[in-house]
Every structure is written in C-alpha cells, then in structure tokens.
C-alpha cells in the first residue's frame, strides 16, 4: 500500500530494503522523435508473449490498436492536425502528425495498487507497479481506479495465453481468463540487468529508460531546447511530483495538450480523497450514532 496521507517520496523506499534497494527506474517517452513505427508494440508483445489483439481496421489514422488494455501494453497513438510543427514560421508546413507511444504510467500514487484487495498488485524495488497473475482473482477493482484506463481484464481464454503459467482459469474450466494484465516495465528484464523490450527496440530513442531522477533532468533540458527552437505546444506530462498522481514513473514530452492524445489533463489518484471520505463517513456515522442514541434517550414518551 502506498501512503495516502503523505507527500510523494520515492515509492521504492517502502518496498525494498538492504541489498534489494534500488533507485527508482522509469520511462521518459519523448514524442518529438517518435516516428510511429510501432516497434515498441511488437517488441512488448514478443517479449511478454502477449496474445494478438484481433484484427479490426479502426481507421483512426494509422492506429488500429485503439488503446491500452490487457493485450496491449504499448499503444501508439496517431493524431493528424492542421497545425505547424514550429511556431517560428521557418517554412512551416500547415500539417503535423503527432505520434505517441502510450504505456502504463507506473504512478507514484497508484490507485490500482491502493484498491487491490488481494495484494496481487505490488510495488517493486524499481518503483514500478506490477500485477501478479497467480494471485489476481479478477475482481476488477483496479480497472476503474486507474485514471488512464490502462488496466483491463483479459476476456480471451487462457489457452490463448501463449504459454503463460499458471493456468488456473483453464484449470477451473473458465471460458475467460478474467485476470488483469498490464505493463510490468519488463520486471524480468530489469532483474537481468537489461532495459525493457520497448525502449530497446525503439530506433529513435523516443522511449528512454533509466533512473527517474536522471530522466526528469533530461526531460527538462529537452523541453527547454524545444521551446527555444519554437516547437508548437511542447510540454511535459506527469513529470511533476506534486501533481495528482505524484508524478509518473513513465512520463512524457507531448507536443500538444494531453486531451489531444486521449490522456486525462489533470489526473488525480482515485484514492486521494479516501482519508477525507472515511473521515466524512466516520463523522456521519458518529452523528447517526448520536442521533440514534439520542432518539432513545430523548425519545421516550
């Protein structure tokens, strides 16, 4: 459980100690150099043995994947706009095509983590949020908790899991897998001293992996440069540790407002008001209790 009442610290500080302690790792996805090749989508699926999503021509520009989900842990969005790339007017073309590789944000305040009743979701020593399939019971509480819609229950059958074990749902004769699957920030690769599959595959280093502090510094410098060079709408998203989710372990440099990419502009962890809500409920309960007691004490007639 992350703390609900304290300001953001390094989440990993609570999850590991002694030799296992590790600095927090994350992604900085710089969309100004994304060429929309989708190598990240494919590399992720290959490494994690994720089933194919099904083929449907969505016709959303070149995006036929649609959104993140249980079978898509990296999703490249394409947004065509009639806007120039630069504001300094240097031979500006009136068109631009935004491309962005979306992923689980590995929030500092992760609502999915907060609400998971089984302890399936946990924070690793790298500060990442990972779901354990052998514990997940498919309750689905985490699904609406995520402000980004990252989590999803897998609806296809386990036999399509391409070799993933354990296979409890199949064992129990269930038609749907039912468990939640999401980006692990390649926990297994990190343990082996490698970078995640997507950042490894990215040809233009749009997806950068490293210690979060370092990435944040790099991102700040990058934003400075782009703003100096007159890039239209360049901004960082989820970099700020004081934002509603405490900053993300996977944050972005976008070229327009988050809504344009289908991202929530100011996400707040769903459990942020939980202490307040419990407080209110406790107050209400107390008042009710007083009222009930009072009605007995004063209500006899």
């Amino acid at each position: 459980m992350s703390t609900l009442t304290e300001p953001t610290g390094s989440p990993a500080g609570y999850e590991a100690w002694g030799d296992a302690k590790h600095e927090r790792m994350g992604f900085f996805t710089d969309t100004s150099v994304c060429i929309g090749c989708k190598a990240c989508e494919v590399a992720c699926k290959e490494w994690n043995l994720i089933p194919a999503d099904g083929q449907e021509f969505l016709g959303r520009s070149y995006d036929n994947t649609g959104e993140l989900g249980s079978e898509t842990w990296r999703h490249v969005a394409f947004i065509e706009q009639e806007k120039p790339l630069h504001t300094n007017g240097d031979g500006a073309t009136g068109l631009r095509w935004l491309m962005e590789s979306d992923v689980c944000k590995h929030c500092s305040h992760a609502a999915c983590l907060d609400v998971c009743p089984t302890g399936s979701l946990f924070r690793t020593e790298y500060g990442t949020v990972v779901v354990q399939q052998d514990i997940c019971n498919g309750c689905g509480y985490c699904v609406p908790a995520c402000p980004f819609g990252v989590l999803e229950k897998r609806h296809i059958a386990s036999t399509e899991n391409m070799g993933h074990k354990p296979d409890l749902p199949a064992f129990l004769g269930k038609k749907e897998d039912g468990r939640v699957w999401k980006c692990t920030l390649c926990y297994d690769r990190l343990k082996g001293g490698h970078e995640p599959a997507c950042s490894h595959a990215c040809p233009t280093k749009s997806i950068q992996f490293g210690p979060l502090d370092e990435l944040r510094e790099r991102a700040d410098k990058r934003l400075d440069k782009l703003q100096h060079d007159g890039w239209n709408g360049a901004q960082l998203y989820l970099r700020d540790p004081d934002d509603g989710i405490g900053g993300a372990g996977a944050f972005f440099l976008l070229l327009d407002d988050p809504e344009v990419y289908g991202l929530p502009p100011d996400p707040v962890v769903a459990t942020a008001k939980l202490p307040e809500m419990w407080m209110n409920m406790a107050t209400a309960a107390a008042v009710l209790a007083v009222g009930i007691v009072g009605s007995f004490l004063f209500g006899r007639e």
């Binding site: 929309g36 031979g91 500006a92 095509w97």
Partner: peptide, 11 residues
C-alpha cells in the same frame, strides 16, 4: 504527408 514528413522541417 507521411511518417517521414511528420519528422521533417518542411513537407
């Protein structure tokens, strides 16, 4: 206007 044009200074 292709994915190359998206990265170009000018298309």
């Amino acid at each position: 206007f292709t994915r190359t044009s998206a990265m170009a200074t000018k298309w």
